[in-house]
Design a binder for these strands. Structure first.
Lengths: 151, 151
DNA sequence: CGGTTTCGTGAAATAATATAACATCTGTCC
DNA sequence: GGACAGATGTTATATTATTTCACGAAACCG
């Protein structure tokens, strides 16, 4: 995420939290920023390391608490298959995203494919299942890495 | 999984492994059986506990090695969002399954929805992404639990 | 304003999940 | 039987996540 996007996301996060009557504290903002400026998903302990410069003596609960908050607010996502976290690419609206994760370079693309969401919903409804949170993470190789390998 | 299904799956597993020239050893078969007879997904350490009766002094690598093998052979699945493992409901053919996981009762339904698979594939291809393993786990409430709650 | 309640944080310990490294054994092939 | 590859035994350790209890800050309410 570049600087402009970061500013937008942070401003948007401030606004959303205000609207919702929840508090985007310094620690929470720090974690959100760290995730947004990272070019790859970060594990909780990587975040912990990077917080050392900013927060005094952070412990695991420090980062997990911030992550819990940000996840609840839809400002970050957890990538279950990587045990890692990533800033949400479009926090502007509630959404069910899918993630395309490159095994090779670690790049993660967050996409919002209506057709995927729809067919998933339908598959659940077919057996009376009520969806709370869909986890859709596709592991594979991104276009760039595929191209490189074929050279 | 009932007894008849278990027999079928085990027989099928034996056959598949023979065809592929890989060895379904006692330990591996034990892990597969434990997963199949369980009515819910098991974590690696739950498996470890249940192996104590069968295998002498099992250690974590014992169970993780067996799981790695079984995952490779498509005989079990890993549920990333639960850190747990489950016997494959239909090992007869290679497949990309989706899992509907009930938060309330822990029941997991493995479904193979062609429409989901297709739209996911398309979403990847749209950006040149080459899929290796799709992880699709829908967290929510099963029909039974929804009904109970509304009573 | 002062009291209270709620939410957020600090800190230490520990639980749960997963892997590394290296030695030993077992089955298969020639 | 000797050599090789694959499977297992064993100990230690890495990584991810939660519990618990004490303390502090902000919002709420009179």
């Amino acid at each position: 995420m570049n600087n402009k996007e970061l500013s937008h996301v942070l401003a948007r996060a401030e606004l959303l939290c205000q609207e919702r009557g929840v508090r985007l504290t310094e620690q929470r903002k720090t974690v959100l920023q760290l995730l947004c400026v990272s070019d790859k998903p970060l594990s909780a302990y990587e975040l912990l390391d990077r917080m050392r410069g900013v927060v005094k003596n952070p412990a695991p609960p420090t980062v997990y608490r911030a992550l819990d908050f940000l996840l609840e607010q839809g400002l970050v996502h957890k990538l279950e298959s990587l045990h890692a976290y990533i800033g949400c690419a479009h926090p502007d609206h509630p959404h069910a995203s899918q993630f395309l994760i490159c095994d090779n370079c670690g790049e993660v693309a967050e996409v919002e494919d209506a057709s995927v969401a729809k067919s998933l919903k339908a598959a659940g409804e077919a057996i009376g299942f009520h969806t709370r949170r869909p986890v859709v993470e596709v592991l594979g190789t991104c276009a760039q890495c595929t191209a490189k390998r074929n050279n």
